[in-house]
Write a protein that binds this DNA or RNA. Structure first.
Lengths: 409, 409
DNA sequence: GTATTTACGAACGCTCGCTATCTATACTGT
DNA sequence: ACAGTATAGATAGCGAGCGTTCGTAAATAC
């Protein structure tokens, strides 16, 4: 009892392993309640062992007991059933942008307990911290979760995030903004681990979780800026910290990157502003087109895709060009990563099938294995959802003691 | 004892875990022998537990006992020391090409026991199988390892390999060649698991192992063909099976891939044959250049780099163009993967610093985090070494029972 | 030659999980 | 309505493994 070194131990560690196995089995079948007999089958443990573990977990509050299933009209004594008690360790996800703060609270099973969003016309850094505090409290109240119960927090920040220090390079457009202050501030409000990650990464995590399990996912966030997250078999790929920065891919044979610029070549070529600009130019050149009618003076990105959907050839040409540029930029990465799927999210994703089909056609010409190309179903909630997901992973990784041996050095 | 389901168990599984912990500790410190006291410290287990585990491992042949260290003149009774007995489960690596067969035998600790290479001027598929058998026997004899001791075999094949079935798409240039026959043949010779993988993947694995531990590695094999392997924290990234096919990256804005072609655009642009062709053309255009002198009629890839190293401007221009094309093709993947290092191997890697510096300069213009750019130190042995490495990983993964819970679904 | 230091070896007690048995509960059939 | 049966939960005994403690062996220092 004195040493307590991690890695190997006596019988008490055995017990921990078995309790964890039981808890894991329950988690996997969530939210469906499980009978003890099923747990015995799934864990391969003996019944008394499982029973003891269940008792322990009930006492600790990780499981909750259900009455017998009234729908189950089988023979014999009705079994008591247990399921995850989500409130045992709820987590909080945070998505902070210059004009919008979103906070979500999720229970252990991944059920969303509350989601609060507040928009405002550009806060200062100081105001933003205040707003964040308010929105967190609102979300906690709505979820009926006391602040001290929160087991982990993950915050999303644009820019490149250093995974451990939480320092941010390429700070976004809030003057005086510092992610370190954010972490400190949140840690002051909630006494639990607080982590920070790139928003594109978190969105990718959410999408990967929604698609389920294994495989390689390349999740593109396409708005004014362009970023991507890579999820391989459920784990985020970070590289040295700046993985997925597709916005900086060169599009022209003479392009050169300037790290000081806040935007990269691909963003300047096919970011939402660039698409709108291309549309405006095309409308000017073709005043009689449907595109010009639709958009008028204040022609928007959405107008371009709307006109293209109505088969306006002028708009279609713009979409074609955008799709071509995007596909040519992404194709090398698709060849190298060979992902199971490429999912597009963010504002531009609202374009729908018009854009997706055009990209798909182009990508088919440039790759060997053609990954599934999809639109993100999560829309604007992707980032918060991913933040909650990562917080959940953190909690589970701490609670389920992965016994020893990890690296394959 | 009847169930035997994986995942959780009683005290016998505890023993297995602890024995594995001890074995793992010994492995990590290989080839240095360890005293029992050190094992106690490293595993956190009690001395009797460790002693028992060591006895068991000695009996099973996984460890060998050393006499007391004669150099160690410390007080007290001299400690018994144990180390990995590599011959307990030697593995075999196989690199099969149309003109060359290489076989390596390695012991458990990763020590190379033998390496036999045989070249020939194009065998038929049938002859090749015979040659493989001979070379395997030679390598086994040289390593003094009986065939039945081999615990795992990994074979390298060019082309895209389906990880599980062992079927190969994009078969290389041996008529009638089938990797399935190869597997069957080897399984007939050696009664153990036989696996197959892409040669670029295996080379990447070897290079990653040589560089040590964690991080993301992009290992390019650059010869007549171009391929790459990706290793993330010691594990190979395969995607859906065709990851790393950089040879098919488009170089021209109008390039289109034809999956039927055996070569992709980048290979046609900067493969070793293409480099030689560029050199010949440049020599024709500049008959007085050093390049033309060096190469003559049969100008070779090596001549181009040699002339460039001697600062011949004509050759330097060719190298510059090659480097530029390569860097532009690779830059998007570097941005997306953000690897710790990019290592170049294969025939073209012999070009040395001339090419490396040119690529480095170009890549610096096109990426945010600039990964280390290096030449592979393993030269032609990379693929066999990687094959042995993978076989070793297989053996260890089977022997060290990773207790339960894996996926983070 | 004795004291000291270090390591090996054996006996005891504790915890834990597995097998086997017994009790509890609800549905079914006569 | 009552016995039978099938399923689930609770309890006791057994075996295995680990950790602690003590005794013993082998080398060096004085």
């Amino acid at each position: 009892m004195s040493k307590g070194t991690v890695g190997g131990g006596g019988t008490t560690m055995l017990r921990r392993i078995n309790v964890a196995a039981v808890l894991d089995a329950v988690r996997r079948s969530a939210p469906a309640p499980l009978r003890v007999a099923e747990l015995v089958e799934r864990t391969g443990l003996a019944r008394p062992t499982v029973a003891q573990a269940v008792d322990e977990l009930l006492d600790a509050g990780w499981l909750q007991q259900h009455g017998p299933d009234s729908a189950d009209r089988s023979l014999g004594r009705p079994a008591i059933r247990v399921s995850l008690r989500g409130r045992a360790a709820p987590v909080l996800g945070l998505d902070v942008g210059p004009h919008r703060v979103t906070v979500g609270v999720s229970d252990l099973a991944g059920r969303k307990l509350s989601l609060v969003r507040r928009s405002g016309p550009g806060w200062t850094a100081q105001q933003l911290l205040g707003v964040i505090g308010e929105v967190i409290n609102e979300a906690l109240a709505e979820a009926e979760v006391p602040a001290e119960d929160i087991a982990a927090v993950v915050a999303a920040s644009p820019g490149i995030v250093d995974e451990h220090t939480g320092r941010v390079q390429l700070v976004p457009s809030v003057p005086g903004w510092s992610a370190i202050d954010l972490i400190k501030h949140v840690r002051g409000l909630l006494d639990c681990p607080v982590m920070l990650d790139n928003d594109a990464n978190l969105a990718a995590l959410a999408i990967a979780a929604a698609r389920g399990g294994t495989g390689t996912l390349l999740a593109v966030q396409w708005g004014e800026r362009l970023g991507a997250g890579i999820v391989i078999d459920g784990r985020l790929h970070r590289g040295t910290g700046a993985a997925g920065e597709i916005g900086f891919i060169a599009t022209d044979t003479d392009d050169v990157i300037n790290p000081e610029d806040s935007r990269g070549p691909l963003e300047r070529a096919v970011g939402s502003e660039a698409i709108a600009a291309l549309g405006r130019q095309a409308a000017l050149d073709n005043p009689q087109s449907r595109l010009a009618e639709l958009g008028g003076e204040q022609l928007d990105t959405a107008d371009v895709f709307a006109a293209a959907a109505e088969r306006d050839p002028v708009a279609q040409a713009v979409v074609q060009q955008v799709a071509r540029t995007f596909a040519r930029a992404l194709a090398p990465s698709v060849l190298v990563l060979d992902p199971t799927a490429v999912v597009i999210g963010g504002g531009v994703a609202r374009a729908g099938a018009v854009l997706l089909d055009a990209i798909s056609d182009q990508l088919r010409l440039l790759t060997l294995n053609h990954p599934k190309l999809e639109l993100s179903a999560l829309a604007e909630d992707a980032v918060v959802t991913g933040a909650m997901r990562m917080a959940l992973d953190e909690v589970w990784q701490r609670k389920l003691p992965t016994p020893a041996m990890t690296s394959t050095t």
